[in-house]
């Protein structure tokens, strides 16, 4: 077995997994707090990519240096996507807070179709070329055959986002309130926590990480279209379920497992069956651990 090839696949899987993780976090946080699978989450990621494309094109035309373009585009995408996430929750989910769970789920699917078609009409159905925002660093040249500069940036960005998110959720006041709300909403309200505000905040954070993921992958793959959120969303959803939906470390672990599975199977067997492998691993894990790798099986105490 060629060790270089193995390392390449390993790192490729890690990069893929990072992207999935950035999206999966949004799924798992929202699920953790209101037990809703937000099917429109992939669309938030797509909108992030579109915003990134528009902003970076304009800024490049105006002659801004590459680094400035990346930062500004990412910031714009984060803000714009967060606004979408916030609004989406207020319009599509909040009125259904006390309705049966299925209603909110259908509302989420409706939101997903609406956003796809809205971007289709407002933009285009064609694939749009996305500029490679991240340059090839010279100092990285000797290792570039293993992992390219843009991939390295993806890995580092993901790592930084994860660390920030962990700090936010573990140590800040609002992070603790998020955990408390996810465990018992009524009790949280009885302690003076504004539950609506915490839920909105969760959507904003989830949307922001998805937008970062959207920009990174668009710049890596080099093209985007209105449908990109659907497949990425499904994959990230699989990753979140694999790891145990509702669990944040679970979402990250699930994403890496999925990334490596796809990378190794396509590398050693065939790239035609990439998605098949992804779903096979899902089925296998759910047979043996129905709650996901790190998921807590729900035991109801009465």
């Amino acid at each position: 077995m060629d060790f270089d090839y193995f390392t390449q696949l390993f790192l490729g899987g890690l990069t893929r997994g990072s992207i999935y993780a950035l999206i999966a976090l949004g799924y798992t946080m929202v699920y953790g707090i209101i037990q809703l699978i937000n099917f429109a989450h992939g669309e938030i990621y797509m909108i992030g990519a579109f915003t990134g494309l528009i902003v970076s094109s304009v800024l490049t035309m105006m002659g801004m240096p590459a680094l400035g373009v990346v930062v500004m585009a990412a910031m714009a995408a984060v803000i714009y996507s967060s606004a979408y996430g916030y609004t989406m929750e207020k319009i599509a989910y909040k009125p259904l807070r006390n309705a049966p769970r299925l209603s909110a789920l259908i509302s989420a699917i409706g939101m997903s179709l609406f956003l796809q078609n809205y971007v289709l009409l407002a933009q285009t159905s064609d694939f749009l070329p996305f500029p490679s925002l991240i340059p090839d660093f010279e100092f990285w040249e000797p290792y570039a055959h293993m992992i390219t500069s843009p991939e390295l940036v993806i890995l580092i960005t993901t790592f930084v986002v994860m660390v920030l998110l962990t700090v936010l959720i573990k140590f800040t006041k609002i992070g603790k309130a998020m955990r408390a709300t996810s465990q018992d909403q009524v009790m949280a309200a009885l302690l003076g926590i504004n539950v609506d505000r915490i839920i909105s905040f969760t959507f904003v954070v989830g949307s922001a990480t998805a937008a970062i993921g959207g920009i990174l992958i668009a710049s890596h793959i080099g093209q985007i279209n209105f449908y990109m959120g659907f497949i990425a969303g499904i994959k990230a959803f699989v990753a979140a379920v694999l790891g145990g939906i509702g669990s944040i470390p679970g979402a990250v672990l699930g994403s890496f497992v999925l990334g490596w599975t796809e990378s190794f199977f396509t590398g050693y067997i065939s790239s035609d069956y990439e998605d098949v492998f992804a779903f096979i691993i899902l089925v296998v894990i759910l047979i043996f651990r129905p709650a996901g790798i790190l998921g807590k099986s729900e035991t109801q105490k009465v």
Binding site: K176, R179, A180, Q183, D184, V186, M187, L190
Partner: peptide, 11 residues
């Protein structure tokens, strides 16, 4: 202090 105590179990 509600009925059943409602401690946040994972905090």
């Amino acid at each position: 202090v509600p009925e059943g105590r409602r401690i946040f179990p994972y905090l």
